[in-house]
């Protein structure tokens, strides 16, 4: 009974925290509550959410993907560089860049049996070089008219709601369905909870893991495209400083880094929490730089709250 009420609390806690934070910030500045502002805040959060949504799967299998910010930067470069040349096809090309990077991280980690944080860190080095190669180390501007033609799906609005939100919600629904309804989703949960039991039940665990890393790279790629569309340019450092908030919003949402427990909507809520905290700090005058400190500590604190210590005997 006690355990059950504890799990229930853990399920709803992030949502409660979000509501409380919104109320706090709203009390400080009433204009925060306006519909326009709310939509804007949500739209601003979507790139972060997109990046974090894929990493959620990797964290659920008990790994980590430290390459996402490099991947997002790279795909922004691919998009910006090839949009003038290939038109609409630059978008799938950029996504494929993300797919390959994610697959590489997963392959290196599982098949070569290298701990995921090192494998993805190493891959991010390669990806960073690739981004620099695509963009020739420069920031590449996307011409306005091309953006008008090809990227309005990401930056325009529809029914008065910014398209970033539609994109974010669409991926929220699709990934939630993948996690909740498909065998892949169930096995992701199972591997995070008890990998050896899943393996002993005759399942090719490596394949599922590689797929999770690949999805993570893919979502980072999509995030990079939306980011480039919003900013009107691609650059090999575009998504720098995104990794920490991305991991923060996953754990703040209640996904445990020990694996097995988590969901995409939690990351969605977590991303909103991170964004509201950021706005709140700006309101009360915490400098943008100092916010990084706060996120560092929030990350560690959230990990401490969510992780399942019973599962790991030796903490390294």
């Amino acid at each position: 009974m006690k355990m059950e009420s504890r799990t229930r609390l853990q399920t709803w806690l992030p949502l409660i925290v979000l509501v409380v934070l919104v109320l706090l910030v709203g009390l400080y500045d009433r204009t925060f509550f306006s519909a326009g502002n709310m939509l804007e805040v949500t739209a601003d959060t979507m790139t972060l959410f997109l990046m974090a949504s894929g990493v959620t799967l990797v964290i659920m299998i008990g790994g980590i993907d430290l390459s996402v910010q490099a991947v997002a930067s790279m795909t922004s470069c691919i998009l910006a560089v090839y949009l003038p040349r290939f038109g609409i096809f630059a978008i799938p090309l950029a996504v494929i860049g993300g797919v390959i990077a994610g697959f590489a991280g997963g392959y290196v980690s599982t098949r070569l049996r290298i701990p995921s944080f090192i494998a993805t860190l190493a891959v991010s080095g390669v990806v960073l070089s690739a981004g620099n190669w695509f963009s020739e180390t420069k920031s590449v501007v996307i011409p306005g008219e091309l953006s008008q033609t090809y990227l309005t799906w990401a930056v325009g609005d529809f029914l008065g709601v910014p398209n970033e939100i539609w994109v974010g919600v669409a991926f929220l629904l699709v990934l939630s369905a993948v996690l909740g309804l498909t065998p892949f989703g169930r096995l992701v949960r199972g591997i995070g909870a008890q990998e050896r039991a899943v393996m002993a039940s005759g399942i090719d665990v490596d394949r599922i893991k590689i797929a999770a890393y690949t999805l993570s790279g893919t979502m980072a790629g999509v995030a990079g495209i939306v980011m480039a569309a919003r900013l009107g340019s691609g650059s090999p450092t575009l998504a720098n400083e995104f990794l920490l908030p991305a991991i923060a919003c996953i754990v703040v949402g209640g996904t445990a880094i020990t694996g097995g427990v988590g969901s995409i909507w939690r990351t969605f809520v977590g991303a909103l929490i991170v964004q509201v905290v950021r706005i709140g700090m700006t309101f009360i005058g915490v400098s943008v730089f100092a916010q990084q400190i706060v996120f560092g500590f929030i990350l560690v604190a959230a990990v401490a709250v969510t992780m399942d210590r019973a599962k790991v005997l030796v903490i390294k």
Binding site: R186, A193, A197, S201, G260
Partner: peptide, 22 residues
Amino acid sequence: RKVEGLVAPFTVAENMTLAALP
């Protein structure tokens, strides 16, 4: 059993079908 036999946080049904998911 708890390490290799079962996924403890899975439900009874989820554990039963684990080896025959397809």
